[in-house]
């Protein structure tokens, strides 16, 4: 059995003298999609940032891709981050942004190419391959600031994949997307996992966003792990009621999951 993509033990993170993350033990299995769910302020993004080495730990160990993250010095930390594709929740959208979609995707190759080195033909081939695979070919020369929110998200995923990562971290990749774009994004995550077998750490708020391939869910609450398991085991009716209040029920069907009002879904 291969080593976990990430191992977290006795982790405590504090902010403004308040404990925002307190995890005894958590392993993210290799080659699987792990979804991190929880209410606002549960500590999901803080955990992602701890995995990337952006957070100072009060105590504990965070081991990702066999690297002891808190102990890495600046150069080693940069090398480590090149192995992780990260799609942030918030996209930097500015009308003055001069970068084209192709240039934004190329950012994923920048760290790998190294200082003082220009992109090789291979670098551009990888960039163009992911632009095509995510259906952005017609937009490659367009300004990133001018394309739609869904297309921007796809470009950022293409950027993360152009890094040829060993771990993909997606922080609410469907935030602010309409239903159609949300479904396309779920398909993209499913497709990437099927084609690459990458371990994927997915942060989301809605069960609907979980791709069918996601069989490992971590539920966080107030910085602690409340439950770990399959979506069906973690998101039981009782737990959803306890978390989000009464009047809700959970549907698990054909590998997809949804929370709907108890009044029933109208067809």
């Amino acid at each position: 059995m291969s080593a976990p993509a990430a191992e977290i033990s006795e982790l405590t993170v504090q902010a403004a003298r308040r404990c925002v993350l307190d995890i005894e033990q958590l392993n993210l299995p290799a080659g699987q999609i792990t979804a991190l769910l929880g209410r606002n302020g549960a500590g999901k993004t803080t955990l992602l940032r701890a995995c990337l080495g952006f957070v100072k730990l009060a105590r504990g160990a965070v081991r990702v891709l066999d690297c002891d993250v808190p102990r890495l010095e600046a150069a080693a930390l940069a090398r480590f981050r090149r192995r992780i594709g990260y799609v942030p929740q918030l996209l930097p959208i500015r009308s003055e942004m001069p970068l084209t979609v192709r240039e934004v995707v190329a950012i994923g190759r920048t760290g790998r190419a190294g200082l003082f080195r220009s992109f090789t033909r291979t670098d551009w081939q990888v960039v163009d391959e992911w632009i095509e695979r995510l259906g952005l070919g017609a937009l490659a020369g367009r300004s990133f600031a001018e394309i739609s929110g869904g297309e921007q998200r796809k470009a950022i995923i293409a950027r993360a994949m152009a890094q040829q990562p060993e771990l993909l971290i997606l922080d609410e990749p469907t935030a602010n997307l309409d239903l159609g774009w949300r479904e396309r994004m779920v398909e993209i995550i499913q497709q990437i996992h099927a084609e690459t077998a990458l371990p994927i750490l997915l942060v989301c708020h809605e069960l609907e966003v979980l791709p069918p391939a996601c069989r490992n869910v971590v539920l966080l609450g107030d910085g602690r792990v409340l439950a770990v398991g399959t979506p069906e085991n973690v998101f039981t009716g009782e737990r959803v009621t306890a978390l989000y209040g009464a009047g809700l029920r959970v549907i698990h069907e054909h590998g997809r999951h949804a929370v709907v009002p108890r009044g029933g879904a109208h067809v």
Binding site: L52, A78, R81, Y86, P88, P92, A106, G108, T110, R159
Partner: peptide, 17 residues
């Protein structure tokens, strides 16, 4: 290429190594 990435987002550039 590094400056282009930094211009896009310093946080994203740091996350990309």
């Amino acid at each position: 290429k590094e400056l282009r990435a930094i211009m896009f987002s310093r946080a994203d550039a740091a996350a990309a190594g």
